[in-house]
Design a protein around this nucleic acid. Sequence first.
DNA 1: ACAGCCAGTTCCACAATGCGGAACAATTCG
DNA 2: CGAATTGTTCCGCATTGTGGAACTGGCTGT
Lengths: 249, 249
Amino acid sequence: MAGGVQSIERAFTILRALSLGTAGVTDLSERTGLPKSTVSRLLSSLEVEQAVAQNDEGSYELGEGIGDLANALQGGQSVIDIARPHLVELMELTGEAVGFNRFDGTSIVTLLQVDDPNSSVVVRDWTGDATPVHAVPAGLAILAHSSRSVQNTVLSGELQSFTARTMVDPAQLRERFDQIRSDGYAWVFQEFADDINSVAAAIADRSGRTTLAVHVHGPSFRFPDGLDQDELGLKVAATAERIEAQLRG
Amino acid sequence: MAGGVQSIERAFTILRALSLGTAGVTDLSERTGLPKSTVSRLLSSLEVEQAVAQNDEGSYELGEGIGDLANALQGGQSVIDIARPHLVELMELTGEAVGFNRFDGTSIVTLLQVDDPNSSVVVRDWTGDATPVHAVPAGLAILAHSSRSVQNTVLSGELQSFTARTMVDPAQLRERFDQIRSDGYAWVFQEFADDINSVAAAIADRSGRTTLAVHVHGPSFRFPDGLDQDELGLKVAATAERIEAQLRG
DNA sequence: ACAGCCAGTTCCACAATGCGGAACAATTCG
DNA sequence: CGAATTGTTCCGCATTGTGGAACTGGCTGT
């Protein structure tokens, strides 16, 4: 392939320029030969990706997102690999399927799902799929441990109802975050789908930001019947803590 | 601005997916929801930027370029800020203008030029400009300390003559690299421009790769007359070593 | 040896997305 | 207050990025 994707080339030209020090739009424009408006637009996109950050004077510098990526580069072992044995253990403990999730700023993506091999009726495989952050316990648990601005961003958007039980009122959700932080886990009953119940606990990633979560879910007709909800919640939270400790290294 | 640059968003989606572990094109396609051909094309561009690398099995993982960017993020102080006092000192020592350069894989970019305030006839300001790697001493010094594959990449391209003295023969240049490594510096006399002479020494950056250089240059009619070329070369090399030591932290 | 499968790559018509000049908004300084 | 400077936004347009399909190469099973 002769030429690459120009936008990506330009983005990295800007990132490399910023790796030499804080710079403003005009300075970057002169140094890269790109028009000011192009630089500003690219920086705006890079900021959404957290690859750059704008300081108080309006200048730009590299952002945490680069450090996050580099942490993975240096770590060697993937986050999924680390989480997997813990998920298997939790699955065996509960007899239900277990999931590992990541918040990408917009939705919850299931990175890994470990199903109970003894169950014949199971919740379908969600690996790789996105679910709404406000309607699944992984999302709620992560939001509960996120900064005010992350919460505000999510709660200021349109929150869709998936069932009659989906909670979409921002004030109610904020109170719910308080409860989740106090409990250490989040339960969701038929809020995303009428036939799914689930409990999750949040995990801070290597950079210290809470973007991951582990959950247990099952069909509403049998889960969580016969299990103590508090006790199960605490087991999920304990699993989350073990994963988190191992991520920290 | 409502929507960002889609290509950049997609590129970072892929980078974040890879931060969770090595993955192939098909896997990434499923996980990101992007068509295989799009993923492949974006990966190709990211590879040129060294943000990803392809392993022997054809799968992709994060590349060194991310670590390079992160090094700057963690360092806090910019490379230019570190180099500046050393450049000023070298300028005062020599009475000529001094430059600090970076090799971006294709050409040499002058990041900073410190002029002698007492000179009335000076070489113009090259800050932010690109010069041909094979015709300026900074380029030659960096290439001399670069891997065989970097040298091959440059020497296999078309090497342009700028003056009657520009060296463009790859075999001759390879011998010259040997001499430069032995000397510790590189002199260029009227090879890029008939009225400029210059001497440079290479600097390894924080990641250990030799991508930087410091040079002294002046108008051919007076530089380097009256100065011992070996002695000046060694002074430039000493400045390079001091910058390098400080970069290493 | 051959066919099928699977993975990553390349091609190309097309339209969507990115572009850049110009206007805008905010801040600072004389 | 006006000018200069900086970063941001707008919008017509065409270039760039797209994605389906074909291609290429390697592996496996018959």
